[in-house]
Write a protein that binds this DNA or RNA. Structure first.
Lengths: 231, 231
DNA sequence: TGGAGCTTGTGAGAAGTTTCACAAGCTCGG
DNA sequence: CCGAGCTTGTGAAACTTCTCACAAGCTCCA
């Protein structure tokens, strides 16, 4: 059926198109959209939109554009959004609690099956309308509820162990919020979201574009503190 | 001084190397590290590590490896981590509060200068040891504290307006957590972190690797509900 | 029915990124 | 001082992603 595999870069953009199409359908009520228009709302190049969508199939009409409803359906099917994905959330700290109450997940069919933690004073607490369970129950919940996606929201030192327990329980996809690299078997997919790394990348480009004079000045000062390269 | 600009892909990895080097220095106390070893802890290819580091300069020693301290200093200088970056956090909802108490930012020199919101019942509250201020004070705070980085943690519909107010106040780099595309002038950098998009990407690959039989079955069922492509 | 005006789908080339493979160069022991 | 054993730095090839430019094909109106 599918001729070529869909490039990773395209997969990463499909959710953006999806959301823009939803907004479009809701706010303007338009039934059809051109690649130009979709590109504008997504902040990308129109040719890129067309090429991306062409990987899904030939769903547009020349001279007219794409039918919004039909395209929405095709993208959601491709992304697997036509079914519900129960998610296991591990870690009920600051971030875990915020994620538990985050509405955006449920909107796309990702429901939190259960929240886990390991601290005695956290297990049993109410978070986002659910009771925090002990991590030891993970395997049972995963099996019972058919969980295939796990979210790691624990301190960095605990992340690798949690990842292993998720894999052991049968989870095949992991979203890692802990600022650490986790290693998993090749049949498991991990994506990481690292808040501090994003700021560091911004800092790089920020520094780059600061006034030349200021940068030169700062560099001179910094060089004085620089450790010597060992001989 | 710099011959070639550092590729974006490399910039995105420097913070990962940086963290691994810190861990390494702390846990093993090693003074030197090979590209092979660093690559292992970062989950990347050794040649990539060497090429990435070579953009910073020739900081290694053949037959020996890289001096950990020296490399740490060079990366932190490149990323602009030798100075402190005050950050304006807009949005004191679930996510905003979690970000406000997130330790990882301060560890890398990103200090929250102030938290802003617009809701009367939120402004004035205590969050992470700070008092939430009204968004109208943004401009003053940015000017006074020399803020150049802003974080958007507000509902999607408010994101564009907040972005404009940040830009207007003089912020040059924005980290956007709202699930929406924000448009800014070309001299401003935006990076987005979209939690739901990450799950949708996982969902795509998850679906792909599920048992063929199951997928076929599901597809057959789904096709029945598919809207017809308009003629 | 035919032609003007759009818009898609895509080949081809450009640009960016990853990986390979190996010369250059360091250390250390004998 | 020399050669064995490492490890870096980097051209070059392979691969991926982006962008351009235009033929193919649709709609609508006269």
């Amino acid at each position: 059926m599918r001729t070529r595999p869909i490039p990773e870069a395209t997969v990463a953009r499909l959710p953006v198109y999806f959301r823009s199409l939803l907004d479009l359908a809701e706010s303007t009520g338009a039934t059809t959209v051109s690649s130009e228009e979709l590109a504008r709302t997504c902040g990308v190049n129109a040719a890129k939109v067309r090429k991306d969508l062409s990987y899904l199939g030939s769903y547009g009409t020349r001279g007219v554009g794409y039918d919004v409803e039909y395209l929405l359906y095709q993208i959601s099917r491709e992304l697997g959004l036509t079914q519900d994905w129960p998610v296991a959330l591990v870690g009920a700290g600051n971030l875990g609690r915020a994620l538990a109450s985050y509405k955006g997940f449920a909107e796309r069919g990702f429901s939190i099956a259960a929240i886990f933690d390991i601290e005695d004073d956290v297990v049993g607490n109410e978070v986002g309308g659910m009771t925090v369970r002990h991590l030891d129950e993970l395997k049972d919940v995963v099996a019972e509820d058919g969980v295939s996606i796990g979210i790691i929201a624990v301190p960095p030192l605990a992340a690798q162990e949690v990842a292993e327990r998720l894999v052991d329980a049968g989870v095949k996809s992991i979203l890692n919020f802990a600022p650490s690299v986790v290693k998993v078997p090749p049949n498991v997919t991990v994506r990481k979201v690292d808040l501090s790394i994003e700021l560091q990348i911004l800092s790089f480009y920020q520094q780059r574009t600061q006034a030349i004079a200021t940068a030169r000045e700062a560099n001179r000062r910094l060089r004085l503190q620089a450790p010597k390269k060992p001989l």
